[in-house]
Amino acid sequence: MVKVTVPATTANLGPGFDTLGLALNLYNTYTFEEINEGLVFEGCPDKYKNIENLVYQSFAKTAKLLGKNLEKNSYGLKITMDTHIPVSRGLGSSSACIVGGVFGANALLKGNLSKDELFKIAVEIEGHPDNVAPAVYGGLTAAIVENGVYSVKYSISDKIKFCALIPDFETSTHEARKILPSIVSFKDAIFNVSRTAVLLKALEEGNFELISVSLKDMLHQQYRKTLISEYDEVKKICLENGSHAFFISGSGPTLMNITNDPDFIKNMENSTRYLKNKWDIKFLNADRSGVIIK
């Protein structure tokens, strides 16, 4: 039996579109057990209890790379899921499934692939590295794809607290990407590049003034906010209650704040109670370990 724990992730962090990602202390745990025959799922809705399950698909693809074709062999597998990352909310639920399946297969089948090799497999399945990198390595990461995939890890100050507002509705990552323009202005590109460079140092130092200035974006949030109900109202409430910085988590609809105010959640709960949608408000810290296998 193998147990794999994977953190939630928030991607982009404002100007770092499709590049930056951060692991958060909200987790999914996947347990893999060999059984006599069949495929058994526990802990997930019935609609996911089939071979299309993303955890299983990732497990099977990794198993094939390790020389074990699950479709041809009568391999019995039980996958138990203890999930706390909300689905389709911009907190890396699909990356968590993929990383769980990839690392679970390598551990259960006694593969000898390294963490870096497993990272590349997970990125190939996911299609982009911004959520996968922090899920694997933990902390604050930047990743690029150029004849392969590369990732680096940055320090992040312990002073920084993240407060997520997670709504009771989903958004489609496909729709959130389709709404983006195919061409951006030179001015907007410079705006994001300059702020991304400053943001990384500001997060390392815990400099809230610099974070507030640099965690702004001109490439994606102005378009994606149109898919998030009550975006403008929620942003106004957050800023009025002392949020140092406000950004869309991934492609949404979760809205993220950076703060060091211990009363922020209490104030936000009072201020959002009359909104049309229900917003679950959580304080989150950076996870620094990434995926853990036991």
Score class of each variant (00 low, 15 high):
Leu219Ser: 02
Thr173Glu: 01
Lys216Ser: 03
Gly148Val: 11
Glu204Asp: 02
Cys163Ser: 08
Gln222Leu: 14
Leu200Phe: 05
Ser157Val: 09
Asn207Met: 02
Ser185Thr: 03
Lys178Glu: 02
Val193Thr: 13
Cys163Phe: 08
Tyr137Ser: 02
Lys159Asn: 10
Gln222Asn: 15
Lys178Asn: 08
Ile183Thr: 12
Ala142Phe: 10
Gln222Trp: 00
Phe191Asp: 07
Val198Asp: 00
Pro167Arg: 00
Tyr150Ser: 14
Phe186Val: 13
Phe208Thr: 00
Ser157Asn: 00
Ala142Arg: 04
Leu215Gln: 00
Val136Thr: 04
Thr141Ser: 06
Ser155Arg: 15
Ile179Asp: 01
Ser185Phe: 03
Glu204Phe: 02
Ala189Arg: 08
Lys159Pro: 02
Ala189Leu: 14
Glu175Gln: 14
Glu204Gln: 07
Ala142Ser: 13
Ala135Ser: 10
Ala189Trp: 09
Ile160His: 04
Pro181Glu: 00
Ser212Gly: 10
Asn192Glu: 07
Phe169Asp: 08
Ala197Ile: 12
Ala143Cys: 11
Ser182His: 10
Ala133Trp: 11
Arg195Pro: 09
Ala202Tyr: 00
Phe208Glu: 01
Glu204His: 07
Leu210Ala: 15
Leu215Arg: 01
Asn192His: 03
His174Asp: 14
Pro181Ala: 00
Ser182Gly: 04
Val145Lys: 15
Ser182Thr: 11
Leu140Arg: 06
Ile179Arg: 01
Arg195Thr: 05
Ala135Val: 04
Gly206Arg: 01
Arg177Lys: 13
Val149His: 10
Ser172Tyr: 07
Arg177Pro: 11
Asp158Arg: 06
Glu204Leu: 04
Ile156Val: 11
Ala164Cys: 08
Thr173Met: 01
Gly206Tyr: 01
Gln221Ile: 07
Ser214Val: 03
Tyr137Thr: 02
Ser185Cys: 08
Phe191His: 08
Lys178Ile: 02
Ala143His: 05
Lys216Ile: 03
Thr196Gln: 10
Val193Tyr: 11
Glu170Ser: 07
Phe162Trp: 03
Val145Thr: 15
Phe208Tyr: 08
Val132Arg: 03
Tyr150Gly: 13
Ala189Cys: 14
Val152Pro: 10
Ser157Met: 10
Ile160Tyr: 00
Gly138Val: 09
Glu170Ala: 04
Asn147Ile: 12
Lys161Gly: 02
Ser194Phe: 09
Lys159Leu: 11
Tyr137Cys: 06
Ala142Glu: 08
Ala133Asp: 06
